[in-house]
Design a protein around this nucleic acid. Structure first.
Lengths: 209, 209
DNA sequence: CAGAATATCCCCTGAAAAGGGGATTTTTTG
DNA sequence: CAAAAAATCCCCTTTTCAGGGGATATTCTG
């Protein structure tokens, strides 16, 4: 299997970007575009009966966020390498994609050379971070890790951000207001913020909801 | 000049998108790609000695925002039609681009057909809004204009989001806590939200800080 | 299966925010 | 320059939040 053709699958909902990829990668010797999807669902559907070596994955998909899709793919098909693509350069985003199994992170303002290099590196099982992504990640890890939020906490966080009070959230989730209050306190403690305003800001900055 | 070839100029800092455009538009009969730029500056430089019929303009450029570039181009060369391209679909953005002279707004998830249609329409001097952009604009004007936040309110909004309390903000701005409280109440009323959490969420969603 | 993590629930106190009212001074702008 | 807008300040009450404590089920995981 030395120097075998790398089968690349693209997941991106922007036809322009798709077209750009095809145009950029289509004539490459060692690369074969084996398919593409515009949504997370159709991507998952494809891999039921097919495979690929590397997935170029946009983080902002219409039906699911890249982090969750990444996790799901890596759980089901650990052999497929994922290269995350994003317009944004949020440190926490990079970190979380990597934590969920991505092998690389490239910004969409990468050129052909960088994109190819990333694909080859990732295909070899190595990690590729574009310069800016690496910077962002380092900056992020300096300021401590991103705390892990549980499913319930996330649920409550979203309702808090919608403007619901503890009693309102409680009745919506069929639990006691005390419970909601506990979760809220845990969120404040975990994310190291001192009140609701800072909580929502932090959560939005770090894409926790 | 009937059915003359439309000279299209592209301004976008993403090589992938550029490549996609070239690939999509390169073989079109009635369209000629007359040039491209990755920055607002090089775009302005090009038009000193050259021209075009339509500019496909990314809104998020590294050196200048699309709204200002749009305004500058339209002032200097009113005959050039501008078609805004964006990943985002913020009503206020659409509105402001159109106000500054853009003839159309297409989301980057548009397909070839839509992109071509938009170019042809815009070239004829008509307006083209992609469906979602039109919706966003309408939604924006339905729900009353984009609420206008004063400088002081914005200042206080930012401090609220940082987790400061009214007394803390007051001492930071050398005003009375009552004043801060008034501003806070005005913010809640203006943005039509019922508490701090929803206020911060709304502000972040609408890029108010 | 045992320990860890999560989710559930309760107590208390004091601080802060929300909701209502009104008022004055400064600044902006037509 | 006068009206409108913005910024400043104060009163009141009720609700919600923050910070501290602790406790018991349930679920996940090594």
């Amino acid at each position: 299997m030395f120097n075998a053709t790398i089968r690349v699958f693209i997941v991106d909902d922007h036809p322009l970007v798709q077209e750009g990829m095809r145009s950029l990668l289509g004539n490459e010797k060692g690369i074969e575009l084996c398919g593409y999807a515009m949504t997370a669902q159709s991507c998952l559907g494809y891999f039921i009966n097919n495979s690929a070596d590397v997935i170029l994955m946009d983080i902002n998909l219409p039906d699911m966020n890249g982090i969750d899709l990444c996790k799901e793919i890596k759980t089901k098909y650990p052999g497929i390498m994922i290269l995350a693509l994003s317009t944004f350069n949020q440190g926490s985003y990079v970190t979380r994609m990597m934590e969920n199994g991505a092998s690389g992170y490239v910004l969409k303002n990468a050129d052909k050379k960088e994109l190819l290099e990333a694909i080859y590196e990732v295909n070899k099982g190595r990690t590729y971070l574009s310069f800016e992504a690496g910077q962002a990640m380092r900056k992020d890890s300096e300021s401590g890790q991103i705390p892990v939020i549980t499913r319930r906490e996330k649920e409550i966080l979203i309702l808090i951000a919608e403007g619901l009070t503890n009693p309102e959230i409680a009745s919506k989730l069929f639990v006691s207001p005390s419970t909601v209050d506990s979760h809220r306190k845990n969120l404040l403690a975990k994310l190291n913020v001192k009140n609701t305003a800072a909580l929502v800001k932090f959560a939005m900055d770090h894409q926790l909801m």
